[in-house]
Measured scan of single mutants.
Amino acid sequence: DHWHVHIDGERIRLDGASEEFIRTLEELIRRGTDARELKEIIKEYLR
């Protein structure tokens, strides 16, 4: 599956992301997590 998110107007691909990770991201977004912080979390995950 190819997922991607838009954060700060930037399109970030989440290739190979699990549904669990996507749900976690959605939860963080709902909580109002800062965009820079979200991008860091995604970069760490994709390593």
Rank of each mutant, 00 (worst) to 15 (best):
E26H: 11
D8F: 02
G9Q: 04
I22D: 00
K39F: 12
R11E: 15
A35V: 09
E27P: 00
H6Q: 10
E19T: 12
E27G: 07
H4F: 14
H4Y: 14
I7Y: 04
R31E: 11
E37K: 12
E10K: 05
A35S: 13
E20S: 11
H2L: 07
I41T: 08
R23Q: 13
D34W: 04
Y45R: 01
E26V: 10
R31D: 09
F21A: 02
I42S: 00
R13K: 11
G16N: 12
G9H: 04
R36H: 14
I29R: 03
H2P: 12
R30C: 06
I12Y: 13
D15H: 12
I42G: 00
F21M: 07
H4C: 14
H2Q: 14
E10Y: 06
G9W: 05
I42D: 00
E19S: 11
W3R: 11
I7V: 06
V5C: 06
T24N: 12
T24C: 08
H2M: 12
E37Y: 13
R13Q: 15
I42C: 02
L46I: 11
L28E: 05
E27C: 06
E27L: 10
V5A: 07
R23L: 08
G32T: 03
H2N: 14
I7C: 02
L38A: 01
E44T: 04
D34F: 04
E26I: 11
S18Q: 04
I41H: 07
I7R: 00
E44K: 08
E26D: 10
R36A: 14
E37P: 01
E19K: 13
I42Y: 03
F21I: 06
I42M: 03
A17I: 07
I7A: 02
I12T: 03
H6R: 07
T33W: 07
E10T: 05
E20D: 08
D8E: 12
T33E: 05
V5S: 03
D34I: 05
G16K: 06
G32L: 05
R47C: 11
K39S: 05
D8V: 03
I42H: 00
W3D: 06
A17T: 05
T24S: 12
D15A: 06
H6C: 13
K43E: 15
D15L: 07
E44N: 09
A35H: 09
K43N: 11
D15T: 10
G16I: 05
I29M: 07
L46T: 06
S18H: 09
D8S: 04
H2D: 12
H6E: 15
A17P: 05
F21E: 01
R23V: 07
E26G: 07
T24G: 09
E10V: 06
I22L: 08
H6T: 15
S18P: 11
T24V: 13
K43M: 14
S18N: 08
V5F: 07
L46A: 03
R13C: 13
L46H: 04
I29W: 04
E10G: 02
D15Y: 12
A17Y: 05
V5G: 06
I41P: 00
A35Y: 07
D15I: 10
H4M: 13
I41E: 02
E40A: 14
T33N: 03
K43R: 11
L25E: 00
H2G: 04
E44Y: 04
I22A: 04
L25Y: 02
